[in-house]
Amino acid sequence: MSWFTKAFSTTIGRKLVMSLTGIFLILFLIEHLIGNLLLLNGDGGLAFNEFAHFMKYNRLIQIGEVVLFGGFLFHIIDGIILIRKNRKSRPVQYAVSNKSEVTSWASKLMGPFGIIILVFLIVHMYDFFRFKYFSPVADMPGTDISDLASLVYIKFQSVGYVAFYVIAMAVVGFHLYHGFQSAFQTLGVNHVKYSPIIKGLGVLYSIVVPLGMALIPIIIYINHITQQI
């Protein structure tokens, strides 16, 4: 191994990977949320579809997509390696566990929450790749832009799918609740002035972004119900 890969293979090194990719994914979520919100534009999905079209054919975005997948991959693989290592670090568990209340339970469940998110991601990616490469989506009438929005609207008419999506977002929220501030601590950012700001931002972010994400299917579903009536 070179010094570079070695630097990222220690426990601290792997945590750095988690932290850097985590922050990258946090930033990506903002872009993702903005894109998704276009579904609620009230234009029958036109803005959303145009956005998706742009994302699909722009060269830079295509490169970005590879980087994004890399980010996910590293975050997931390193996460799993760390979970395994951490498990091995305590072969015999305590009979009684009653740790101080200072620690949040979100922080103790980073791994399990990560696994749940991974399951969600697999389902999510299955849809993403299916429609991107394998089952062509019909274009919007009179354009050469795929009508993805209609697909989404139809998907979110299923209460089961909406519930799955909402629960997944709640888990993402908890994952972010600790992950956001933890990423900065891992990068060595700990300061009497700035750490409280980072923590505050983290809490805000972990509520706003997943909530925004979760509201979209809920609104679509409600719209669907009310239109039926």
């Binding site: 426990t11 792997r14 945590k15 951490n86 305590r90 922080s107 103790k108 501030q181």
Partner: peptide, 8 residues
Amino acid sequence: GACTNTGA
């Protein structure tokens, strides 16, 4: 193990 910054 590695640090999860739980603070325990």
